[in-house]
Simulated scan of single mutants.
Amino acid sequence: MFQQNYPSVQHPYTFELNKDFNFSAAHYIPNEDAGKCMRTHGHTYFVNLTIVGDKLDHNGFLVNFSELKQLVHGQFDHYLLNDLPQFEGKSPSTEIVAQTIYEMVQTSLDQRSNQPKCVQVYVRETPTSYVVYRPKEQRNHE
């Protein structure tokens, strides 16, 4: 994976964890005004998750890095995103992919006793295009 600088998030937490990973998947945007994106095509998506918190678990982790990768990579790698239940009724644009990853990750984090929070999901679709998703409720912690 290439070295990447990501937009930073201001937050009041003691710890910040960042996890990079990628997955390969195909998608299409099912609207005529999407142009060429209306046709099925694939990407290698590069993802960075920013997780924050004040308390560590019994291993001294906010969350295990491998759990974060498996949570997303295991669900999306080598799939047609349009066929996945997470995108039912949604167009799997990069914005929606980032938001969906946030929802999956935060739902998992909510089960942890140390209550870490996902404050940013960065999804790069191509070398020149990326999306950053930040949940609104986290912006008020500045």
Results as ranks from 00 to 15, higher is better:
A26N: 01
E137K: 15
V131F: 05
E142P: 09
R134T: 13
V121S: 02
N22E: 08
Y133W: 04
Q111Y: 03
L49A: 11
D20T: 03
Y122M: 05
V63I: 00
S129R: 11
D83E: 06
E16C: 05
V121R: 06
V105L: 03
Q70Y: 13
Q86G: 00
D20I: 00
G89P: 07
V52Y: 06
C118V: 02
N114F: 08
E16W: 00
L56A: 12
N114D: 05
L17F: 14
S129P: 01
G74H: 10
K69W: 04
Q4C: 12
Y122N: 03
Q138M: 14
P85I: 09
H43D: 00
S93D: 08
I51R: 15
L17P: 06
T14Q: 10
E125P: 07
E16A: 02
L81D: 02
F21R: 01
V121F: 03
R124I: 02
D33S: 14
R124Q: 11
E95D: 00
V52T: 07
Y102I: 07
E88W: 14
C118H: 02
N140F: 15
V47M: 04
Q86H: 03
A26T: 05
H78C: 01
S129G: 13
N48R: 15
F23A: 02
V63L: 00
K136E: 06
T50K: 09
T50G: 01
F76Q: 05
G74V: 11
G74C: 11
D57Y: 12
L17K: 13
D83V: 01
S8D: 06
L71H: 02
K136S: 08
N31H: 12
K19D: 08
N31M: 13
Q138A: 14
V72C: 06
C118K: 04
H78M: 05
K117A: 04
L109D: 03
L109C: 03
D33T: 15
Q4H: 14
E125V: 05
Y45K: 00
E16K: 01
F76Y: 09
L80P: 09
N5L: 15
N114T: 10
D54N: 15
F23S: 04
H58S: 09
A25K: 04
L68V: 05
N114V: 12
R124P: 07
F46P: 13
G74E: 10
K19Q: 14
M38T: 14
R124S: 07
H73Y: 06
T107A: 07
P85M: 09
L56P: 13
T40W: 13
M38Q: 13
F23G: 01
V131Q: 04
G89A: 09
F76V: 06
E142K: 11
N64I: 08
Q75H: 05
P116M: 05
E67V: 01
K55D: 07
E95M: 08
P30E: 10
S24T: 10
V72I: 09
F21T: 07
H11G: 03
P127I: 14
P12A: 10
L81V: 04
E32L: 15
F46L: 14
L68Y: 11
P135H: 10
V97P: 00
R124V: 04
S24W: 10
R39K: 15
Y28D: 02
H43C: 04
K117N: 03
T107R: 06
D20N: 14
L80W: 13
Q3E: 10
